[in-house]
């Protein structure tokens, strides 16, 4: 265990540690606490510059109501789901297949393809921007949820393949061999053996991709222009320009944007962290 467990330390250390932890947590979360506090304030507090004192009114729900009534926030949230969920399903499904192919078959181009996926995953978005936008135009999918989803699926396939391939590779190969000897077809090996065994990886990938896509701002800006298909990140950005002086509404909107991934994270924490830290503990 490193560092030495605090329980083995002198009392004074133990007490100061127990004080230090909540204090540092509070400092760490100040930005988020600030925005939460602001989201329950009324306009009065904002104009009076009361940002850190007790809110003079508790208006969270009326602020949220105002956001929903005066802005297309509801559409934005629905769009975010419409973009995120199909992307998660698509990317995970495709990468199960690519991951399986790269993990359990030997062929010449294997490593090359694998590294291509990895390399593509690190590419700066800007180098893809203009061609992807043009391509989406030509397919008639510009400014549609479908167009954005297609790109997201394609791009996320890079990361997901890396993830899945490493996961499947770590599965005992004997399982597949035994099934082959029993005459199970390759497709059935995939469906009946690989998919059930990769469930934890699928769960981890799903939460990760959900968060990545939900929080995507760049591609939403590049491939979407109208409110009808705009996800919440890009929507918030446009409200940011409109609401420069009404921080309480902007805060309420920001919180709405943050809630789904946060819920996702707390529900699926184990998988989320397992996904993010893949490779952090082994060479």
């Amino acid at each position: 265990m490193f560092p030495i467990p605090i329980q083995k330390r002198p009392l004074i250390n133990r007490i100061s540690y127990k004080i230090l932890v909540p204090v540092s947590l509070f400092i760490w979360l100040i930005p988020l606490l600030g925005i939460m506090l602001t989201s329950i304030r009324g306009l009065g507090d904002i104009t009076a510059g009361n940002y850190w004192g007790m809110p003079s009114e508790f208006l969270l729900f009326s602020n949220i109501k105002e956001v929903f009534q005066n802005t297309p926030m509801l559409t934005y949230i629905i769009n975010s789901f419409k973009i995120t969920i199909p992307t998660v399903i698509g990317a995970v499904a495709i990468s199960c297949m690519t991951g399986f192919a790269l993990a359990s078959y030997k062929f010449k181009a294997n490593l090359f393809i694998f590294f291509t996926f990895i390399a593509g995953n690190f590419v700066p978005f800007q180098i893809l921007m203009i061609p992807v936008r043009d391509l989406t135009f030509q397919m008639g999918l510009y400014d549609t949820v479908t167009g954005l989803v297609l790109f997201h699926v394609a791009f996320q396939t890079g990361f997901c393949t890396l993830f899945m391939r490493n996961f499947i590779k770590a599965l005992p190969n004997e399982l597949f061999e035994a099934a082959r000897i029993d005459g199970t077809s390759e497709f059935n090996i995939f469906l009946k053996i690989v998919v059930p065994l990769t469930r934890p990886a699928i769960a981890a990938l799903s939460v990760l991709i959900f968060t990545f896509i939900w929080n995507d701002f760049f591609w939403a800006t590049v491939l979407i222009q109208g409110q009808h298909a705009m996800p919440i990140t890009a929507g918030l950005k446009s409200l940011n320009g409109q609401w420069v002086t009404v921080y309480h509404l902007l805060s309420a909107g920001s919180i709405m944007a943050a809630v789904p991934p946060v819920i996702m994270f707390f529900l699926m924490q184990k998988h989320f962290i397992a996904g993010l830290t893949l490779g952090a503990s082994k060479g």
């Binding site: 510009y142 400014d143 222009q225 109208g226 409110q227 446009s238 320009g241 409109q242």
Partner: peptide
Amino acid sequence: NFDHEGYKQAIRN
């Protein structure tokens, strides 16, 4: 409807 800033980009498209 488009938002004000976005419109200036969107119009070309």
